[in-house]
Design a protein around this nucleic acid. Structure first.
Length: 583
RNA sequence: GCCCCCUUAGCUCAGCGAAUAGAGCGCUGGCCUCCGGAGCCAGAGGUCGCAGGUUUGAAUCCUGCAGGGGGUGCCA
């Protein structure tokens, strides 16, 4: 239903193709935006053409200037040295862009390229019995944003939380509860569980007997023994409650939890099959899949003591996803440090004959590091140095700072009734936007002031622009209609905004292609900067305000303002950042 | 040793084959007779890590080197 209309680039390219030995598609790729509006709105560099025509690019541009046909919406073609630039019929282009946004509303930027296709996205995936730390932030917000982006492009998305709830460490916890005679195991909090784990590990370091007890406890759990299972269920429950709460603060949710334990019963059969088919071989008592032909080290699927490990659970989990969803892509939003492991996993699945393994994508991201106060070196966080920040603490601090800022501005702005809610939206918006505003593969050094900044290129800056747009529309007190005279939008700042709004759908598509939410964050920052410039132009010149005295101009400007509001709102939605109407 | 990520302004980052390399922060100087200053305008500030190569054209692609980070069979 929402077919992509021909872009202006496509139209120009079609006309160019009549005179030049290149396909319209290639020519459309070549078109770019000139450095300044005085030089035109679309530009064709003629260097590439000179290769095919064996002529000076300056001559080619000159020649085409006179010959090329102009599509509707273009009023002039002019050569600038080796470039052939096109000048838009601005009112016509403006009318088309604003009309389309007005008609589509929140659906502008959406597409149906993914119709009938499914994308599975694994993100979050914390271990139970531990708090969520700041290092859980990237996966959660990148995953959730990609979910929304692919959804906007028409894909059916499935968000999976691959909960870490299986392994020998839970035997240790069960043993700890029993050893320390915990009175009310059901009343244990996640903090209690972390403490018990640490206490037990410490004691086990000196008393090897406890290691054995822990292993026994895990065996009891594997056998389904009642007491062990009840305790483990309790750990899970209390953890999930906390995860829900903290992920909820971020606006992050899941369609389905697929805990590692879900696959425990399939492990034995899988290992047997790997062994009998010769896909996996024994080596030093362990079971491994050789991946030499892929140039990779072997992937271990069973330890020499018979215990399972990551891949033992990840292989059946991947198969399960394929059986269940027949995905177009299966995304794993996990850190850079797992990049070798991920390639091994994919190669192992390929070796098992799963052609769909090539549809698996590692959406990797950089580590959050901490600055060592003594050496000044950045490094990964450690609990001992007290650097492991809880995600919840960071979010609460963000909200606290947002509230202080709101109170500071209280007499100037009409904040809504619910100050708490607004502080949460702004504070958490700042954190999420900050995480999504740089390319994901880059490592980041955690910095309170940077992550919780509200000025400059930040989430609150975008939210603020949105709130100002909403404020104009409120004050206008009239309905926005599309039946306006777009030639009245004659300010250069208005044209810059229109050009920017025109590019939103392309930004969404590129974000999806690159699995890169930052494309949208950058887009929004530029759009908001254009709007703020436009807005400020009206500060001391009433004629240049949106709410000016001339009715027809005001109506046209309101249509533009509403379009900008709409796109900012949609863009923030794709990032998982809320857009308050006042702040 | 081998593999992966990173290296652009004092700091944090965009730009990923084309017209003078762009933002934000910080610094300097302007702007609230207000459609919201969480804002706007102007200025200073860059041998795009180094060396080769490909190309009409390279911050962008290729090779090598250096620096930082991560990984590298029984954690995930």
């Amino acid at each position: 239903m929402m077919h992509q209309p021909e872009s202006m680039e496509d139209r120009i390219a079609a006309r160019l193709a009549e005179h030049v030995p290149r396909s319209a598609a290639d020519l459309a790729e070549l078109l770019q935006t000139p450095p300044s509006a005085e030089m035109g709105d679309y530009g064709l560099p003629c260097y590439t053409l000179s290769k095919y025509l064996h002529r000076d690019p300056n001559e080619i541009a000159d020649d085409l200037e006179g010959k090329v046909g102009l599509p509707a919406g273009i009023r002039e073609a002019r050569a600038f040295g080796p470039y052939l630039n096109f000048f838009a019929d601005r009112p016509m282009v403006t009318e088309r862009v604003l009309g389309r946004i007005h008609r589509l509303g929140a659906a502008y930027g959406s597409d149906n390229q993914g119709a009938g296709k499914r994308i599975v996205i694994e993100y979050g995936s914390p271990n139970i019995a531990k708090h969520l730390g700041i290092h859980h932030l990237p996966s959660a917000v990148i995953g959730r944003s990609l979910y929304r982006i692919f959804q906007a492009l028409g894909y059916k998305c499935v968000a999976l939380n691959f909960l870490g709830d299986w392994g020998t460490s839970f035997g240790r916890l069960i043993a700890a509860v029993e050893r320390y005679d915990v009175e009310d195991p059901d009343g244990l909090t996640v903090s209690d569980l972390q403490d018990l784990y640490v206490r037990y590990s410490r004691e086990a370091a000196e008393n090897p007997e406890l290691q054995g007890t822990a292993r026994q406890a895990f065996l009891r759990l594997e056998r389904g023994e009642e007491r062990a299972t009840a305790l483990w269920n309790g750990f899970k429950e209390v953890s999930l409650r906390e995860f829900d709460r903290v992920y909820g603060m971020l606006g992050v949710g899941f369609d389905r939890i697929t805990p590692e334990s879900l696959y425990r019963d399939r492990i034995a059969a899988m290992l047997e099959q790997l062994r009998s088919r010769g896909t996996a071989v024994e080596s030093a008592g362990a079971l491994i899949i050789l991946l030499e032909e892929e140039g990779l080290p072997p992937c271990m699927v069973q330890k020499s003591d018979g215990a399972s490990l990551y891949a033992t659970r990840d292989i059946p989990a991947a198969e399960h996803r394929w059986d269940e969803y027949r995905f177009e892509k299966s995304l794993y939003v996990v850190g850079n440090e797992q990049s070798l492991y991920f390639r091994q996993l994919r190669a192992a699945l390929r070796k098992m004959g799963h052609g769909w393994a090539d549809r698996m994508v590692h959406v990797n991201f950089g580590l959050i590091k901490f600055r060592d106060p003594e050496t000044g070196q950045a490094r990964v966080g450690s609990t001992r140095r007290g650097e492991l920040l809880l995600l919840e603490d960071v979010l609460n601090e963000a909200v606290r700072r947002a509230r202080a800022k709101i109170e500071e501005n209280r007499d100037r702005f009409e904040v809504g009734a619910d100050l708490d809610e607004l502080a949460a939206r702004v504070g958490i918006g700042a954190v999420v936007f900050s995480e999504l505003s740089t390319r994901r593969t880059r490592d980041a050094v955690f910095d309170w002031d940077r992550m919780l900044d509200f000025e400059g290129d930040t989430g609150p800056y975008v939210q603020y622009a949105h709130a100002r747009l909403c404020s104009i529309l409120r004050k206008a007190g009239q309905d926005v209609g599309a039946d306006v005279d777009c030639s009245l939008l004659a300010m250069p700042e208005e044209w810059a905004l229109v050009r920017h709004l025109e590019r939103f759908p392309a930004a969404v598509r590129r974000a999806a292609e690159e699995y890169e939410p930052s494309v949208i964050a950058s887009y929004l920052l530029e759009l908001c900067a254009d709007f703020s410039t436009y807005y400020s132009a009206g500060m001391r010149e009433p004629d240049r305000r949106v709410l000016c005295s001339e009715d027809r101009i005001r109506a046209a400007r309101l249509l533009l303002v509403d379009a900008a509001r709409n796109v900012i709102r949609s863009g923030l939605d794709l990032l998982g950042v809320t857009a308050p109407e006042r702040m």
